[in-house]
Amino acid sequence: MAGPGPTRFTLGTGDEAMRRIACGLIVMVLVTLGGCAMGQSGRDVRAGAWAANYTEDYIYDYWIQTVSGKDTGVGGIQVKEFSRGGTSGSICCSRMPGVGQTIKVVWRVGGRQDDKSMWKTYSRDVVVKGTMPKPGYKLQSYLVVRFFPNHEIETELLSGDGDLGPGNPRMDRIFFVGPRVMRQKGE
């Protein structure tokens, strides 16, 4: 007499239900992870940069990097001293980290007649403040980089779907015709 054959597991109705639940959970986890990855890139913004210089340093150029050191393509050149207007030309436009994310601002300071070997380079990690544009916005957003004494800086994103004119209290008066107003860090 032969003994019992090998044991075979079959998927009965209870096993089939458990398999479907497990597959459903795996699919939900993958969808959630994919959504998180998409959300990360959704925190970036396409922006140009404007500089407001509240120092008497001549800033030859500045550029924005990710915290890991990757250039974003956003920056500016020839930021005049406050007494000479305090603004700059800009390099427009590219994707960069948005509001709430940390960026690195790198800038070079030197006298207008100094040789490049005399210039000093500074960098600071700073959290982008401001407001992200609404989905589907059409107008350009701008990162305002503010330079203060003692090589302090701050950055603020001004959304392209908002008011970028003199009526906006977040816009520095330095960008408009009329008296320049010295701004302090944190204002």
Rank of each mutant, 00 (worst) to 15 (best):
M1L: 13
M1Q: 11
A2R: 13
P4T: 12
P6Q: 11
T7F: 01
T7E: 12
T7I: 07
F9Q: 10
F9R: 10
G12N: 14
G14F: 13
D15F: 11
E16S: 14
A22R: 15
C23E: 15
L25K: 10
I26A: 14
V27M: 14
M28D: 08
V29F: 15
V29G: 08
L30N: 08
C36D: 07
A37V: 12
S41M: 10
R46M: 11
G48D: 09
A51H: 02
A52Y: 09
N53P: 08
Y54D: 05
T55C: 05
T55L: 05
E56M: 04
E56C: 07
D57G: 04
D57M: 11
Y58V: 00
I59Q: 02
Y62R: 04
W63S: 12
I64Y: 01
I64T: 04
I64R: 01
Q65R: 06
V67C: 00
K70H: 02
D71Q: 10
T72F: 09
G73R: 06
G75N: 08
Q78R: 09
V79A: 06
K80Y: 14
F82H: 09
F82K: 07
S83G: 06
G85F: 06
I91L: 14
C93F: 14
R95M: 12
M96C: 08
M96K: 02
P97C: 06
G98P: 03
V99F: 01
G100L: 05
T102G: 02
I103R: 01
I103A: 05
I103L: 10
K104A: 08
K104N: 13
V105C: 06
V106K: 09
R108Y: 01
V109F: 01
R112Q: 12
D114G: 00
K116R: 13
T121G: 02
T121Q: 14
D125E: 15
D125A: 07
V127I: 15
V127D: 08
V128H: 04
K129M: 09
G130Y: 02
P133A: 08
P133T: 07
P133V: 03
P133S: 08
K134A: 15
G136W: 11
L139W: 09
L139D: 15
Q140F: 03
Y142P: 00
L143T: 03
V145Y: 04
R146T: 09
F148Y: 15
N150I: 07
H151D: 07
E152L: 10
E152H: 10
I153A: 04
T155L: 05
S159C: 07
S159V: 05
G160M: 05
G160L: 07
D161Q: 04
P166Q: 08
M171W: 01
D172P: 00
D172H: 08
R173K: 13
I174M: 11
V177M: 12
Q184E: 15
K185D: 06
